[in-house]
Structure formats: C-alpha cells, structure tokens
Simulated assay, not measured.
Amino acid sequence: MTPTLLDPAQTAARLPYPLLVSELAALLKDSSVQAPPRVVQPLPGGGSLFVMPALDARTAITKLITFTPGNAAAGLPTIQGDVVVFDVATGQRRLMLDGPTVTARRTAAVSLLAAQRLAPNTQGPMLIVGAGVQGLAHLEAFAEGLGVREFRVASRRAASAQALVHHAQSLGLNARMVFDADVALADCPLAVTCTPASAVVLSALPRPDGFISAVGAFTPAMLELSAALCQHFAAKGSIFVDTADASHEAGDLLQAGLDVSRIATLADVIRQDMKKPAGPVLFKSCGWAGWDLAAARAALAV
C-alpha cells in the first residue's frame, strides 16, 4: 500500500479543531495508548532531533522532526519533519503528515481542550504572546472552538504581530497589536504564551478569572513565565500540566521551584471529569507523542 503523503494544507484539512479536540479527549480515556519518552538528540549548531513514537490498538505513529530555533532569525521554519502513520495489524504505512502542521494544530487543540474544561472565563479578549506559527494556530483554534472574537497580539517583532492581526481581521475577528503583554493581561481573561522561550515574556499577575496556556517552553532550561507568576498560580489559583512528562520538562515551573510531579494532568481532568476550579488557572503544555497519535486518528477519520 502506497501511503498518502499530505502537504501542509492537506494535513490541516484533515485536522479540524472540533475533531482534534474530540480525539484528544478520547485518547486520554483509551487504555491501549502507549507513548514512550521521546528521544531528543542535540544537533551541532544548537538544533535538536526529536523522535516521538506512540501507538494504540489500531494505529502506530512516529513523529520525526527537527527543532532549529536559530532559523527564526533567517525567516526559516524552526520545526521541520513528518509524522508517519502505520496500521498496527498489517504494519503498512497509511499516511505521512506534515510534521510542523501537526505540531501546530495539535498543540493549539490541547490548549483549547484545557481552556474548555478549566478556564473560569472563556469570553475573551485573548492575549497571544508570540506571533509565529503557534500564535496563529491558537488564534484560529480559540476563535473556532470557544467563539473568541477579540484578540490582543504581542511579539518582539512588530511585523509579525501586525501580520497576525491582519490575518485575524481577514477572518472577521477584532484584533490589535499591543506593545506590553503584562499591561494587556489585565484586560484579557484568556492568554497563551507561544514564544521561543528564551526569556521571560509574562510576569504580571493574572486576573482572578484568568487562564494562561504556556506552550513555548518544553525543556528544563526554557521558560516564558516569571517564577513569581508561577508561584502566584500555585498559591492563589491552580496549575495543570499536559502530561506527567512535564515533571522533568516544564522549565517555567521547575525554575520556579515547584514540585511538578504533584500537579494534576489533563488526563486527570478528563478521566475524573473535574469541575472548573476557583481562581486563576495556569496550564503548562510541553508536548507528547500521544497528541500526535490523536492527530493521526483524526486524519484517518476524515
């Protein structure tokens, strides 16, 4: 069987956000899912090679991507690669999905699922810190999945922020660029940080009804949120992580001195049908091959 090779647009078409969110929730209840720790191999020059396998009773995947943060300055993609999808029963390749597209959409869908289940106030406006691929994906996901109509965009590069604002406006959304993310946070019950995570980009305290999804940092050395902000959520609100792997990957939380192993995961929220907690909520997402498996399941279903 010749696998179907999908380009970025074809991959995106197979991963509509409502279906992705549904598959993510279903996967967290599926006892057949296995996802061993990912292999992260440093590359000369500061990049990394990621090898991420996962499987359930019917489907197996491997995501093979490179992450090259230095590419951003040259206008090149920071994430490149593919997701290969296999049939478990026959071992045949079924699909080859565009890796960056899968990564962007499944990450935004995980944030969306967390917001649907945990955010005290889902009305918006929403602050997006970081106007790259993930910023765009989160804007589209929250507009489609939560009906958010108003956005604030902050970025180190004004041109990137303005480009995302123009894209939002082309979708009929109300969006504008802001120069100080900390100041803007006071007006935004929803926020996402999706930067290269090389420095703190958010340190202001959240609103009492605030929800922040922090997705940029996925190693112990990376961070986007100040230690004081993370500690505030621990003392006055709630913190959740995407998976237990965050206990050794969530740089924001680890550098704040928090015991991440004691923090509830998104699987706990779904399996225990947790009610929304009182007070502000921080959701820390580090990534997991299981999310890519959910995307593969969605792509096969379309």
Rank of each mutant, 00 (worst) to 15 (best):
M1A: 15
M1V: 09
T2C: 08
T4W: 14
L6I: 14
P8L: 02
A9L: 13
A9R: 10
T11M: 04
A12F: 01
R14I: 02
Y17I: 09
P18V: 06
P18L: 03
P18A: 10
L19Y: 01
L20M: 02
L27W: 01
K29A: 07
D30T: 03
S32P: 05
S32D: 11
A35R: 02
P37E: 14
P37I: 05
V39W: 13
Q41E: 15
P44E: 15
G46K: 11
L49S: 13
M52G: 08
M52L: 12
P53H: 07
A54H: 04
T59E: 08
T59G: 07
A60R: 15
A60P: 10
K63M: 15
T66Y: 08
G70R: 12
A72N: 14
G75L: 14
L76S: 12
I79A: 12
Q80C: 14
F86R: 06
F86K: 02
F86G: 06
D87C: 11
G91K: 11
L97W: 10
T103P: 08
T103A: 13
R106F: 08
A109F: 04
V110H: 04
L112Y: 01
L118Q: 09
L118K: 07
L118C: 13
N121T: 05
M126Q: 04
L127Q: 01
G130P: 02
G132F: 02
L139M: 15
E140K: 10
E144D: 14
E144V: 07
G145R: 00
F151D: 00
V153E: 05
Q162K: 14
V165P: 07
V165F: 08
Q169M: 03
S170Y: 04
V178Y: 01
D187G: 08
P189C: 07
A191V: 01
C194I: 02
T195R: 05
T195M: 08
V200K: 03
V201D: 09
L205Y: 05
P206K: 03
P206R: 02
D209T: 11
G210I: 07
F211A: 04
V215M: 14
A217M: 07
F218S: 11
T219S: 14
L225E: 11
C230A: 12
A235H: 15
K236L: 02
I239F: 08
I239A: 10
T243M: 01
T243P: 01
D245Q: 13
D245G: 13
A246R: 09
E249A: 10
A250G: 03
G251S: 06
D252W: 03
L254P: 14
A256L: 10
L258R: 14
D259G: 09
D259A: 11
V260E: 05
S261T: 05
A264D: 03
L266Q: 05
D268Q: 00
D268E: 00
M274H: 12
K275E: 09
K275Q: 12
P277W: 04
P280D: 06
L282D: 08
K284F: 01
K284I: 05
W288S: 10
G290Q: 02
D292W: 02
A294Q: 11
A294W: 05
A294D: 11
A296R: 06
A298Q: 11
A298F: 03
A299L: 11
L300Q: 05
A301N: 06
